[in-house]
Amino acid sequence: MHEFPGNRRRRCPGSVSRHPQLGSLRAAPRRLGAFHQIDQGDTSMSDDQVNYYYYLNLIKDQQRVEAFGTAIGRTVKPGDVVVELGSGLGTYSFFAARAGARKVYGIEKGGIVRTAEQLARLNSLAQIVEFVEGDSTDISLPEKADVLILENFSSLFVRRRLSEIIQDALERHLKDKGRVIPEKASMFLAPFTEESLWRECLRLEDTGWELYQLDLGLLRQMMLNSPHVIRAGAGSMLASPQFFKQVEIARPSEFLFDVILTYRIEKRAILHGLLGWFDLQISDGVCLSNAPWNADSTWGQVAFPLAQPRPVEAGEKITVRLSCQRGTIRDDLWWAWQCTTQSGVSESCSLHGLPFQVAEFE
């Protein structure tokens, strides 16, 4: 099988090494809540219930957790004040405390805060780690931090309100010349072929979109105009991936983009869509990626399906456009993507899951 340059998993020294100060954390006892095995993308069930399945799935990602743990152990100095945004179970806050932080503030707006507080007591860290429930942009802390930690990213890094949250944290929660974990994110895109992945995005394709004597064809259009989180293999890519944007988290800028990329197709196939992911530099020498060749990542990748899959030939040049812009309702992100091949043009836009042409999106 042809292997594109860089398809092997890239490791920075120490990217998944175990830091001696991290130790082990005891899990919360069963009495803390029920185990809800539902969609892991949904972090809450109701005002008084927590989707523990989501958080347990995150903490089981040993590669990601240990990489962040290593970076925290190298970055946090004795006596530091640390702020973690979106602290969840508090894992990284606990790592910071064990690395020598004088005080750690874990900010989390979900009900998982109460579980994190109990975990802090169980692990004898409650005197150092304090959890604050609420939105970080609404909270005022008694002191600024030497280190800011955050990890609440989408499978292509950008997500709703991310730049606003980071900008606010840098201005109000972090000292001048404070350190940020992670340091930067680099985004990549590649065309892919795999009918099973394309059908996974559609879910009901095998039914003809007719169930219970109902015509559900509109839902097909909505699914084809929406990004999807999937798990793809490196063998599904039709061309070498291309880097298209880098974000330095300590130097906030607009995370939105509108890029045009050109690819040379490697083999004859059906082009089913575009595949996106990001590489994360967590700290100097500690890196992490959710690229297709990293099967261990819980992030997966983002698939942008083509409304009309296109045949492509080896050596054919295709042009791709990918846009991510801010919406006008609830600060949602609007995605638009377009592929131009020898056989035609396919374009989609995710304005609340409804079909739009790229020209309308602009």
Rank of each mutant, 00 (worst) to 15 (best):
Q213K: 15
L216V: 04
R203H: 10
F192S: 00
L218S: 14
G208K: 04
M223K: 09
L219D: 07
R199S: 14
L214F: 05
R220W: 08
E205V: 13
I230F: 04
P227L: 12
L202T: 02
Q213S: 12
W209F: 13
M223E: 09
L197A: 01
R199E: 15
W209N: 04
H228A: 05
C201N: 08
S226H: 06
P227M: 04
L211M: 15
I230C: 07
L202E: 02
S226W: 05
L197F: 05
T207C: 10
S226A: 06
P227K: 03
D215L: 04
I230H: 00
D215G: 11
L204F: 14
E210D: 13
T207Q: 04
S226L: 10
L224A: 01
E194W: 01
L216S: 11
E210M: 15
T193Q: 05
R199V: 03
E205A: 03
N225P: 15
L202I: 01
G208D: 04
Q213V: 13
H228M: 15
A232S: 09
L219I: 14
Q221E: 13
M223S: 02
R231K: 09
E195Q: 12
L211D: 00
D215A: 08
L214Y: 02
L204C: 09
A232C: 03
L216C: 07
W198A: 01
L202Y: 01
G208V: 02
H228Q: 04
P227D: 15
E194Y: 03
T207L: 15
T193E: 07
R203M: 13
L211I: 15
L204T: 00
L218W: 09
N225S: 12
L219A: 15
P227W: 03
Y212N: 13
G208E: 05
F192A: 00
G208A: 14
E210Y: 06
E210T: 15
R203G: 09
R220S: 14
R199P: 00
C201E: 00
S226I: 01
R199I: 01
R203T: 05
W209H: 08
I230W: 00
L218R: 03
L216E: 10
L204Y: 06
L202G: 05
W209I: 06
Q213Y: 13
L214H: 05
E200T: 07
L224T: 00
G208Q: 06
S196Q: 12
D215I: 13
T193F: 01
L214C: 11
L204H: 12
M223N: 11
M222V: 03
G217P: 02
Y212I: 06
L211C: 15
A232H: 01
S226T: 08
P227G: 06
Q213H: 13
L219E: 05
R231Y: 05
L204Q: 02
C201P: 04
V229C: 10
A232K: 00
L218Q: 04
L216W: 01
E210K: 09
R231S: 12
D215Y: 09
A232F: 02
T207H: 13
C201G: 04
L216I: 11
